[in-house]
């Protein structure tokens, strides 16, 4: 894996800095640009990105300020995530045990909740590069839809009202870099399409 190469390099030069934690594609710490494509170093085999005799070029995630070596400042990424209120909102009285969901309703969250916020998608998105302060980005929008699709959430109208401006959702131009690079195989473009449909249903 690419992470092993980095570990080897760090043993030779301990000043090399990067983030890593679980080393198995669960924590999302080691998102970086590997030979031009974003991915998680820990689950990207060197053989999949380097042709025999080729070079391995590792860069920090594009579009975010570099703190040091491969470590980027992810403040703006988290700010966009915070904007979509990534938590369940339900104003009805809490039931004694838990809020139940039918298996069908639960199924709607598949392909959404698995996001680990590694930022590979958003930092490979040109729309996010040009407007990181205004466009929520694929990661944030995937999570926005995760809560819009949740049968237990009661704030659908408020959530949608916060998304209908020209930037938050509609800056997505369907480039689909997010889908191409997501290490978890998720599809933010489809989620954005669902959000657009919900906005359209609400406003026509």
């Amino acid at each position: 894996m690419v992470l092993d190469v980095l570990e080897l390099l760090k043993r030779k030069d301990p000043s090399i800095t990067y983030r890593r934690s679980c080393r198995e594609g669960v924590c999302g710490s080691d998102g970086m640009n590997i030979n031009g494509t974003n991915g998680l170093a820990c689950i990207t085999p060197v053989s999949s990105v380097v042709k025999s005799g080729g070079k391995l070029v590792i860069r920090p995630l594009p579009g975010l300020p570099v703190v040091r070596d491969l470590v980027v400042d992810m403040t703006v990424f988290y700010k966009q995530f915070e904007k979509i209120q990534p938590f369940l909102i339900n104003n009805t009285p809490a039931p004694a045990i838990e809020r139940l969901q039918s298996p069908e309703d639960r199924e709607k969250l598949d392909g959404l909740y698995e996001c680990i916020l590694c930022a590979c998608c958003s930092t490979n998105c040109p729309s996010f590069w040009w407007n990181p302060e205004k466009f929520i980005g694929p990661a944030g929008l995937l999570q926005a839809y995760r809560f819009l699709a949740d049968s237990r959430d009661t704030a659908i109208n408020e959530r949608l009202a916060n998304l209908e401006d020209p930037f938050s959702v509609f800056r997505c131009r369907g480039i689909m870099n997010c889908v191409a690079v997501c290490p978890k195989g998720l599809n933010p473009t489809r989620a954005i399409g669902h959000i657009r449909s919900m906005l359209l249903q609400r406003a026509t």
Binding site: E164, D165, P166, V169, F170, L200, A203
Partner: peptide, 10 residues
């Protein structure tokens, strides 16, 4: 923007 709303413009 054209209609002040992303949805409208879209």
């Amino acid at each position: 923007s054209f209609g002040r709303s992303g949805l409208y413009d879209w």
